[in-house]
Design a protein around this nucleic acid. Structure first.
Length: 574
RNA sequence: GCGCCUGUAGCUUAGCCGGAUAGAGCAUCGGAUUUCUAAUCCGAGGGUCGGGGGUUCGAAUCCCUCCAGGCGCGCCA
């Protein structure tokens, strides 16, 4: 199969012209190392694109900016697709480009199987580590960000051609299992043990944990069970395995609702066998030194304090596990990079173990994408305080709110369809609420924010898409043979915006901010809604109609592509 | 104390590798449906971009400083 050549963007075409023009007019200052930049006009009144470089060059050229701009425009013939090139204000070069030329570029973009998204990841592998809940605790609203943002980044990378290995690095090992095993045996009836749920496990954990605080004998017993588990005791291994199986079953139910799927489910325990070797290696290379009975790596030189790699009781901790995980992933997948998506609190931890990995020669690029911790208005929440909101409850509420509206607006629809649509809309509303904001902003949870159904919300985008589908269905013919022919300002604006899709996907991915794409899609849906309101499509004269339907089909495809990159569903009817 | 981050309209926010009049949504008020889905569209009011200083032709954006808040800083992950 022939690979379609990457269509160069209008900006790139215009920038290379102006680059040559500046170089010709001012060879001394605009030669080597100078990069002309053309960006979208800040205001449609100014034109379609603008270049601000004349102002930057003015000082070095020792001429007023407007003179520099004029000299550049005089240096080379203006390309034929440029209808108007004028100098404005202090020295902006404003460019107005032929709508038809833009439309032709857009046709090229749509002929590309990736809608013009550069396949920079071709042949490269990235391991992504996101969501990663702890076994035996229900997922709560604090897990939604890592899951939803991580999954969107996963999808964005795949769209750029990367092979992504999404690994759900479950918290399935650690001191909590001694507490859990004792609690499980002491507090649960045989029936409860038979019908074990994560919710029960959580209750048992809290109860057992509280008892360790007041009953030293109990605490000792928990420790003993933990040691037995770590030494491979059959009975404890079996119980532990059961906790994991039950947890995975429940997590999967939620992931299915969220359309999130992993390639691997390797918990921390998967790397247990490698932990001693990691510490030995650090000891042999004199990177780890004893301190108060523990083994630490001193990273003060790098401003990263010290990091414990082996506890004074001989046990290993998370830093060791994470280093072992990097080693294992590097051997198995030879990834270009490993990306971790967690909340802001773990920044130091990641910096520390990234530094240690470098010291022992693990040179895989490691990246920590952090996001703002979700809080409640009264502060942070924790299992022990019992003020968590379960993720499942949030999803249920989202679907219920959507269902109420659907029953009202589609009384004719059968119950099953209403529920299916409510799921499509409700879940997407929850995901969009997270994806549409900068991941690094602080988030204070509120039901109304998380479940917004109008304005800048998931359903707004889905509604625009459903209207497009409805219109295309009513038209009922294939649009493949039609050509775009933008004739009105709003149509041209849509074409210009659609042309920005590839760069938007790339920017969202490289900046690790799905919000850039969410913003773009919202603007696209908004412009479509304005177009829809002001411009008849099916009722227009035939030539106009066919071109407009074609435009609608391009918008629909782009919107659908983008919504899927965010992990949002695209029902054809709302 | 040290480190990371945040501060934009009543609320939620976009813009932050410097560009022209700081864009939206919610809420409030006023309009639009014999017309392709009103979860829509159009309009109005509402801003010392936390304060101060600096760099620059130009600062929400870069630098310094102060204020306010969040998070993290050796054996939890």
């Amino acid at each position: 199969m022939k690979i379609m050549a990457q269509a160069s963007s209008p900006q790139a075409v215009l920038a290379s012209w102006l680059q040559a023009a500046f170089a010709k007019a001012y060879p001394e200052v605009a030669g080597e190392g100078f990069q002309a930049r053309v960006v979208a006009a800040t205001n449609p009144e100014f034109g379609d694109f603008q270049c601000n470089d004349a102002m930057a060059l003015a000082k070095r050229a020792k001429q007023p900016p407007r003179v520099v701009a004029q000299a550049a425009l005089d240096a080379l013939p203006v390309p034929e697709m440029v209808c108007k090139a004028e100098i404005a204000g202090p020295g902006f070069i404003n460019l107005t480009v032929s709508a038809q030329w833009l439309a032709d570029r857009l046709e090229e973009q749509m002929a590309n199987p990736h809608l013009g998204v550069p396949q920079t990841g071709e042949g490269k592998t990235i391991v992504m580590d996101y969501s990663s809940p702890n076994v035996a605790k229900p997922m709560h609203i604090g897990h939604i960000r890592s899951t939803v943002i991580g999954n969107a980044l996963d999808r964005l990378l795949r769209a750029r051609g990367y092979r992504v290995v999404a690994d759900n690095h479950l918290g399935d090992w650690g001191t909590q299992f001694g507490i859990l095993i004792c609690g499980y045996r002491a507090f649960l009836t045989p029936e409860q043990q038979e019908n074990l749920t994560v919710e029960l496990l959580e209750k048992v954990y809290v109860q057992s944990y509280n008892r360790t605080k007041e009953d030293p004998v109990w605490l000792e017993q928990c420790r003993a069970e933990l040691v037995k588990l770590q030494q491979g005791d059959d009975a404890n291994r079996a119980v532990w395995k059961r906790f994991i199986d039950i947890s995975i079953r429940e997590f999967t139910r939620i992931y299915d609702r969220l359309d999130v799927h992993f390639d691997l489910w390797r918990g921390e325990s998967y790397y247990n066998d490698r932990l001693p070797a990691v510490v030995e290696r650090l000891q042999n290379e004199h990177l780890a030194v004893p301190s108060d009975g523990a083994w630490i790596v001193d990273l003060k030189d790098e401003g990263l304090d010290v990091c414990i790699v082996r506890k004074s009781d001989g046990g290993f901790n998370y830093a060791t596990t994470d280093i072992a995980t990097v080693a294992s992933r590097t051997e198995e997948f030879a990834p270009d990079s490993i990306i971790y998506v967690t909340d802001e609190r773990q920044q130091l931890h990641f910096k520390q173990f990234f530094a240690i990995c470098r010291k022992i020669g693990l040179h895989t690029r490691l990246e920590h994408v952090w996001f703002g911790l979700m809080r409640l208005p009264e502060g942070t929440f924790s299992t022990r305080q019992g003020n968590v909101i379960k993720l499942e409850a949030l999803l249920d509420e989202a679907e219920n709110r959507a269902l109420t509206i659907i029953r009202d607006s589609h009384p004719d629809m059968d119950e099953a369809s209403q529920r299916a649509l409510a799921a499509d809309i409700g879940i997407s509303a929850v995901k969009y609420a997270d994806l549409s904001h900068d991941p690094q902003s602080l988030v204070v949870f509120s039901w109304d924010k998380a479940l917004a159904l109008d304005g800048n919300s998931g359903p707004y985008l889905q509604y625009a898409y459903a209207r497009l589908c409805s219109l295309l269905d009513k038209y009922g013919q294939d649009t493949a043979a039609h050509r775009l022919a933008p004739a009105t300002p709003i149509e041209k604006q849509l074409v210009l915006q659609l042309l920005r899709y590839p760069e938007t996907v790339e920017r969202a991915s490289t900046a690790s901010k799905p919000s850039h794409l969410a913003d773009y899609l919202y603007e696209l849906a908004r412009n479509y809604s304005r177009f829809y309101q002001s411009s008849p499509v099916l009722k227009a004269a035939p030539e106009v109609r066919d071109a407009r339907v074609k435009l609608c089909s391009v918008i629909a495809r782009t919107l659908e592509h983008g919504l899927h990159l965010l992990g949002l569903r695209t029902p054809r009817r709302i």
